[in-house]
Design a protein around this nucleic acid. Sequence first.
DNA 1: GATGAATGAGGCTTCATTCAT
DNA 2: CATGAATGAAGCCTCATTCAT
Lengths: 221, 221, 221, 221
Amino acid sequence: MSKKKDRRETTPPLSKSALRRQREREQRLETILGAAQTLFAADGYHKASMEKIADTAEVSVGTLYFYFKNKEDLLVKLLGQIGFDLRNMLGSAFKNADLSLAGIREAGRIFFEDFCPNHPENIAIFFRESVGQGEVVEAHRKKIFDKLIDDVCQALMRVCENQGGRFQSDLSAEVMATSIMGMFERLAYHNLIWQDRSAELKTIGQDAIDFIIGGIERLVR
Amino acid sequence: MSKKKDRRETTPPLSKSALRRQREREQRLETILGAAQTLFAADGYHKASMEKIADTAEVSVGTLYFYFKNKEDLLVKLLGQIGFDLRNMLGSAFKNADLSLAGIREAGRIFFEDFCPNHPENIAIFFRESVGQGEVVEAHRKKIFDKLIDDVCQALMRVCENQGGRFQSDLSAEVMATSIMGMFERLAYHNLIWQDRSAELKTIGQDAIDFIIGGIERLVR
Amino acid sequence: MSKKKDRRETTPPLSKSALRRQREREQRLETILGAAQTLFAADGYHKASMEKIADTAEVSVGTLYFYFKNKEDLLVKLLGQIGFDLRNMLGSAFKNADLSLAGIREAGRIFFEDFCPNHPENIAIFFRESVGQGEVVEAHRKKIFDKLIDDVCQALMRVCENQGGRFQSDLSAEVMATSIMGMFERLAYHNLIWQDRSAELKTIGQDAIDFIIGGIERLVR
Amino acid sequence: MSKKKDRRETTPPLSKSALRRQREREQRLETILGAAQTLFAADGYHKASMEKIADTAEVSVGTLYFYFKNKEDLLVKLLGQIGFDLRNMLGSAFKNADLSLAGIREAGRIFFEDFCPNHPENIAIFFRESVGQGEVVEAHRKKIFDKLIDDVCQALMRVCENQGGRFQSDLSAEVMATSIMGMFERLAYHNLIWQDRSAELKTIGQDAIDFIIGGIERLVR
DNA sequence: GATGAATGAGGCTTCATTCAT
DNA sequence: CATGAATGAAGCCTCATTCAT
């Protein structure tokens, strides 16, 4: 084994200054992502120029390219963060989806009452700004969607199993999961981006969830 | 009264050449819109340059600007056409939505079995390329969505009335209508754009419709 | 001599319809020039597109090119008209310039009290819009200026001769004439285009004329 | 107080490299303005394309837009420079205008014998290329003219006061100042742009000045 | 690591002019 | 003669990206 490998395998003993640098690096990365998030949501992906992002983040344009390969990369990273947050929030809720469907109800509540009002920019970026921005971005969007849909899918299958039922068709679970994502997406888009109905979001969410539950019961016999 | 005046008052009898010009004009307009439709769907709104559109339509760039104010206008007009087609197809189906919900089922069938496989470019343009393209385009998207949602909404309210039921909340009808649009959108996006599952579209549509019907029954008591 | 030539040399016996056509032709020409005049003065030579001019004149673009070789020609013709009007107005006044300098005074009065308030568009076109528009236009501007300056020059020389004086230098007459044109130009520009002081134009003109007369007396000894 | 704060409060001591960069920046700015000046004067404002200017200045088009907002800005900056130079040259001369009118004579000499032969491009730009180029440019032209006229105006008022005389009318001073500017303008235009009579410029200037002095004496009684 | 000046390809748009009807 | 649709060259400008300091 070479020394190099050894170094890599054990945690590198970071000096104080190295630690500080590491911390600063991460802070700066966050700052930049934050600036991009704000500007993408406010001005749109295309109108938000790299220079403006740099200005907002109070760094130089060059620094942007030190931390991110290119503008697309910035969007992809942002997308990754949003996807991570979403799964994080919804994940545990879906995991608890059992016979009672309480997990599904909880997931809906979290999305409409927690995520939407607190992260409208993320809704804007995920459902508006990252749409139709070339193959790379689209691939990432798809990946995130697929994961979320898969989460829902598994919850649904667990529910189905627990209830001892069967899906109408082989695709039913996937169709339902995809449908649920589509519902969430458009309801958020209409009531948060096209008009600000944050106040009604609770009712909207509850209606949506009941709609979903009714749908599920129909397709699981 | 002079003859001249008489003539003016009745609809002007278009001369043969005038008629032909009128026809040619409309044909050319269609040609351009067709070229734009193809390229927007294939290359994306931004990558499809005006020059390329002109080339594809076999006209000069100047002609593009003779028929359309600018690139955005091209997209907006395209959007208008798609919106018109959608309402046209779904309209009569929704009108027949009554107690049996057969109208809703039919509308779903039309969307998934007729519209989607025959107009995938329209799906791509309406749900991908026209998203996040500035305020003007967004306003038109919203208008189209609002109309479609309103169509669904009214169908739902008729169903509700016929069944002598009541919606869970004041927003229920709108929430359901919006949800249905979201479902259609994402199911089409996943199974037509992200992967080509045209073959399974029939099953997918049926599952989706059953999901919807279950949902409706749940929210209408 | 060929028949053709004969025809040309005698006045062609115009039929009634030919006469009417001739009249219509001239009217149309005037209409177009009028539209151009208005638009050039209001929007500027470059911003006034041929299409807009055609619209304003209520003719087609093609017709514009039937009556005028190109856009430049339109400006040149307009310029010619303005030059003709100017010489017409000032000509007789200058012709009367004798010992008493009354002719010069009258010419100033005509310019500031008649021409300026009644033809501000012509001031705008001659002193603003036709400046720096390529060699052809510039050549015409020069020709008009030269003629006007020559008119003044000759008046000055007559005055000088009548008074039995001599010019300070060989160039004096020309310098004075050119100076007078420059004065008229800038005074009109400042008090008509840059601000509307039509009310004070009379006083301004009188002061200007006195300034000129003082100057002349100085250079003619 | 921390050292840092102290440092900030005094003028920041520019490092050598920073100084060099500053110098380079200014040099490049000058280069670009020089190229624009040459091309505007030679080809005309419109025919001088941004690309050609960039080529002449040996920079890229992007660099042009780094230093100037747009083409109009380039012209405006050029105009500003010309205006500054003009006032600089004429300013002190006019300041010395007193009873003897020697200051006025000197100002004329400077304009015709120094400025005109040495900066014909500036004459072309100020009196030809910047005319009728939209509201923004026109506003700057007016501002420069107003300042120059004001300079002359104040000189005239000082002369008047020193001589214990009175102007013929309230507007006399302004009219004379405007007239003088108009004279200078057109004499330069005719004898430098429309034909090259640089050799006679001395005589022309002297005649012009005598004309002016005669005029002044007439209006100040 | 950070900076920011420099690049230049590429896009959209305008508009004078032509020509078939 | 008149029309007006069609042309296409040419211009201005943006902006993601690079690289010497």
